[in-house]
Every structure is written in structure tokens, then in C-alpha cells.
Design a protein around this nucleic acid. Structure first.
Lengths: 215, 215
DNA sequence: GTCTATAGCGAGATAGAC
DNA sequence: GTCTATCTCGCTATAGAC
């Protein structure tokens, strides 16, 4: 256990540390880890530059702490197993909770995307987060999918892509969309489209499994 | 017109310049623009560091040149309008050519993803590339889509997401997939899945438009 | 806990010989 | 065109006063 971790354990919730975390989340999401300097973070947080090293040891340690928080939040958001209702109802609920999380934790996706390109150790945490979400999808769709191109892993990455890409490309979608793609009405429209997509995919799986009642 | 651009016009295809471009493409894709130094690039290219500035003026100019090349290649790959065959046949052809391009230009997606997070001027080029692809989808699906959550722009970003996400998340998919997600057999399986998805979505649109024959 | 001051290094970029 | 040498700057990180 490093000195900084020990301090965090005792001083969790310290005002300055929280301000640093918040500023770093924003900046890492805006520009990516490597393009942000410690000076940038401390200035936005309104604290002294040296405090960052006092609380987090290194700049990389700060990123590590942020990712840890997000992964925990993501795991918690996926916790409810949604064990009642038809496969169709539960699948819609899963997509809804995934969308909710993305809307509530906007910097998360951007930081993850950045990590995906830089082959750092942060990827191992991302892997375990992925396994958790995959397990949820597997519980739901495992019984009605088969092998090969209709394997449940294919549906998993497809659903994830459908949800994620809209937020990921939001900065350049204003050319095609009217107004801000992240406005309330546009986000609602996107949600409706995704639920329509879920229904069409489940319709296709129902045809493949006439004996099972998907809902 | 800068001095470096004038030189490129005259010396297009120069061996050292090409080696620099190739090395930079790889490194930007691996680590992102900000995390790569000019020294890294020159060392991988096997040329002197100062040559990079001789050919491209600045490090940012080098990125600009790489993006320009990729966007041109992307536009060229999407050029064939695919004017014959049913809507269904043409939609499958479009997805196939999109997949072909992604497989042949692997660093492209990674660099674009990085640009998406750093709000640089490179986004304007990405926007025009998007408009081009959107126009293709609009030609095909415009007549059979409606307003709101079944607007053609929703299908555009959904199809893009289905194609892109698999490559984007490839570095961490090895936990769920057996072996390398980018192996020939796994890429083929993904392709089959995507074409199945296209068919299910078109089936859904056919139901919405019983008067039109989608194919 | 928070600050000032600064060490030490590697970055991007330039000058000029060849 | 390609090289060596070098400039300047901003970066991460530390030392130590308060």
C-alpha cells in the first residue's frame, strides 16, 4: 500500500482531493490523458500543483484512481439482475440501464476510449468490467442463441456498439442531427430507436427458436 | 501554401518521407498523438529526427497529412454508388465495403477515435467524411424510413456502430472471444453476424413499408 | 494540508555544415 | 536531402518552509 493510498483511506472526501478528481475527469475526457498536464488540472481545480502529488503520488496514479471509481460505479449500475419478466422485457431493461449509466457518466466513455488506444495497464480493469456486462447478456440471450455468427458474444458486442457509438460520435454528429445530439429530445429519440432495434433483433431470434417464448 | 506542402508536391513518394508517414501511422494508432514523441517516430522510421520537420514542418502537420490520406482513401472506398440490385442487396454491399476498408486500414479507426476525444481541427475532416457515408445510407434507406426514431440518421449511426465497435474493442475482446478477435475466422464470423443483423433490420423496415419491395 | 521554489529531464523545433 | 549540435520551453516530480 503506497503512502498516497493510505492518505486516501484516511482522508476520503477531502475537499481539495475531490476538486482535483473532478477537474481531472473533465480534462482527461476532453483531451485525453497524455494531452493534459498537471498544471492544467491544478488550475481548473483551483488548488496548488504540488497537492496533486501529495494526494495521488503521480499523474498516472490519478488516472488509476479515476478509472477505479468509474469501474465500481459501472459494476454497481449493472448489479440488479432483473430476474423477472420475459426475455424481451429484461433485455429492454438492460439496455435502458446501460443508457442511463452512459448519460449520467459522460466522461467515462471518453476516458475508456482513450485507454483503449494506449496500451496501458488500465485495460485489465476494463476487461473485468466487460466480463460483468457480458455475463448479464449471456444470462438473457444464452438459451436462445447458438454457435458461430449467432453466438451470444456477437449480440453482446452489437448491443454495446449500438449504445456506445452515439455518445462516442456525438462531437461530430451535429452536422447530421438538428441541434445538439445530446439534448434531451435527441437522446429520447435515440432511446426509442434502440428499443426498436432490440425488438427487431429479438423478433429474429424468436424465428430461430419457435419453441421458446421470448415475449 | 507552406514550404513543406510545396516540397510534398514535388517530392511525393520520397523514401524517407514515406518511412516517416508509415512509422507515425503505427505509433499514433498504438498510443495516440500526444503520447508519441518526434523522437519515437524518427527512431521507428530509421531516419534523422530533423527530417520530420523538413518534410512536415511540425508534429501536428504530420498528423494532418496522415488524416488527409486516410480520409481520401475512405472517400474513394465509398465511391462506387452501387446503383443496381434491390435495397437489400445494396445495403449488404455497403456494409461489406465498409468492413473491407476497416480491415485494410486498421490504424485509421484508432487515430479517428483519438481525434474524437481531443477537440482539434482534425474533426472538421472527420465531419465531411461522415457526411459522405451518411449520403450513401440516405440514398438507400431514405425512401423506406420515416421521422423521429426511425429516421435514416438513426440507422446510419447504428450501422456504423455495429461495424466499428468490434474493431474498436478488439484489444480487450480476447477475454470473451477464443483467440485473437482479428483472426481470419473470427473476422468472418463477425461479418456473418453483421449481415444477419442487416437482414433483421430490413425485415423490420419491410413490415413498416408493406407497399415497398425492399428485397 | 498547503504553499514557493526549483531540480532535472525530455519535448518540439531551428541553425547550419555537408 | 541528411546530418550534428543546440536552443528554449514546459513537463513531472521533489524539497522544504509555514
Amino acid at each position: 500500500m503506497s503512502k498516497a493510498e493510505a492518505r486516501e483511506g484516511k482522508k476520503e472526501g477531502n475537499a481539495s482531493a475531490e476538486k482535483i478528481l473532478q477537474a481531472a475527469k473533465e480534462l482527461f475526457a476532453e483531451r485525453g490523458f497524455a494531452a493534459v498536464s498537471v498544471r492544467d488540472i491544478s488550475e481548473r481545480a483551483g488548488v496548488n500543483k504540488a497537492l496533486l502529488f501529495y494526494y495521488f503520488d503521480t499523474k498516472a496514479g490519478l488516472l488509476h484512481r479515476i478509472l477505479e471509481q468509474y469501474y465500481q460505479a459501472h459494476a454497481a449500475a449493472l448489479a440488479p439482475p432483473a430476474s423477472e419478466g420475459s426475455t424481451r422485457v429484461r433485455m429492454h431493461a438492460l439496455v435502458t440501464s446501460y443508457l442511463d449509466f452512459m448519460e449520467d457518466h459522460h466522461p467515462y466513455l471518453q476516458i475508456v476510449q482513450h485507454e483503449l488506444q494506449s496500451n496501458t495497464e488500465g485495460l485489465s480493469m476494463l476487461r473485468s468490467g466487460m466480463r460483468l456486462l457480458f455475463t448479464r447478456v449471456e444470462e438473457l440471450l444464452g438459451p436462445i442463441t447458438s454457435d458461430g455468427h449467432l453466438h451470444v458474444r456477437q449480440f453482446y458486442i452489437s448491443f454495446a456498439g449500438l449504445v456506445i457509438t452515439y455518445f462516442n460520435y456525438a462531437p461530430v454528429l451535429d452536422v447530421i442531427w438538428e441541434g445538439d445530439p445530446l439534448s434531451a429530445s435527441n437522446r429520447r429519440e435515440r432511446r426509442q430507436h434502440l428499443h426498436w432495434m432490440v425488438d427487431r433483433i429479438l423478433d429474429g431470434l424468436q424465428t430461430c427458436n419457435p419453441d421458446q417464448d421470448i415475449g
